[in-house]
Simulated assay, not measured.
Amino acid sequence: MISEEDGDCDNPDSDYCAEIIIGYPVFSIPEKKKIELKINKFVTNEMLIPIFDGNVVNSFNDLVNSFFDEYRQFKTDISDSYQEWFIDRSATVKFFNNDFISLAFSESTYLGGAHPNSYTMFAVLDLKSGSSITLEDIFIDGYKPILNGIAEKEFRKLKEIGKHESLDEAGFWFDDNKFSINDNFALSDEGLTLYYNNYEITAYANGPTELVIPLSKISELIKEGGILVEFMKQ
């Protein structure tokens, strides 16, 4: 865990405060050291994504310093502005078994503007290889139209949208007004979880959408020999 501040953050009357918090797991797989290194490198690389365009970040010190440098420059340019900047970046384990692990990379920030921002990105890693798993690795060829149909039913149920009601009129933005899955997904014993971040399919005020599709509803799409075959038998 990294937690650092710049300024007088403990003083409620202070007009100078920037805070950064970074937390992530470090995995230990003694019998599979190469896979352990690969997974930990993947996590570290995700955590080191630059906060600001154009920054070069090779370490957590670089990440922290770039954040504070930007804040100091902001306060120099607009000295009478009262803004507390913060970034809270984390990686957590959403689910794991002997075959795969689902991770959630989340970030909450305020870097000026009308409101804070946040996002969550999922990743599913194969514990036998350490590689990322895609939807194409899980499902049969031609799965997408069928999965779209199944997911849309779950989405309409979640959002209480009628079968024939327009998604656009209900406040959701999909190309050509047709529901579509994205590739931001996790796997767990609950099912296939799709995550739509703020602004992705609807207004900020409506928040993000986490859509869970039970595996029992997509069992016919699971690829033979894929990562979910044995899991479905449990």
Rank of each mutant, 00 (worst) to 15 (best):
I2H: 09
S3E: 12
E4P: 12
E5T: 13
E5W: 10
E5D: 14
D6W: 14
C9T: 03
D15M: 08
A18S: 13
E19Y: 15
E19C: 03
E19G: 10
I22A: 04
I22C: 07
G23L: 02
G23D: 13
P25L: 01
V26H: 11
K33C: 01
K34F: 07
V43D: 03
T44C: 09
L48M: 14
L48N: 12
P50D: 00
I51K: 05
F52A: 10
S66I: 02
D69F: 12
D69N: 15
R72W: 10
Q73G: 11
F74L: 12
I78E: 13
I78G: 06
I78T: 13
Q83T: 13
Q83W: 12
F86S: 07
D88P: 03
R89E: 01
F96S: 10
N97F: 08
I101D: 06
S102F: 01
S106A: 13
P116D: 01
V124W: 01
S129A: 03
S131K: 15
S132G: 03
I133N: 05
D137K: 10
G142A: 06
K153R: 09
R156C: 06
K163A: 08
E165H: 14
F172V: 02
D176E: 09
D176L: 00
D176K: 11
N177M: 00
I181Y: 04
F185D: 02
L187F: 15
D189I: 00
G191L: 05
Y195C: 01
Y195R: 01
Y196Q: 01
N197I: 05
E200F: 09
T202G: 11
N206Q: 14
G207S: 03
L211Y: 13
L221V: 15
I222H: 05
G226K: 09
I227F: 06
Q234D: 11
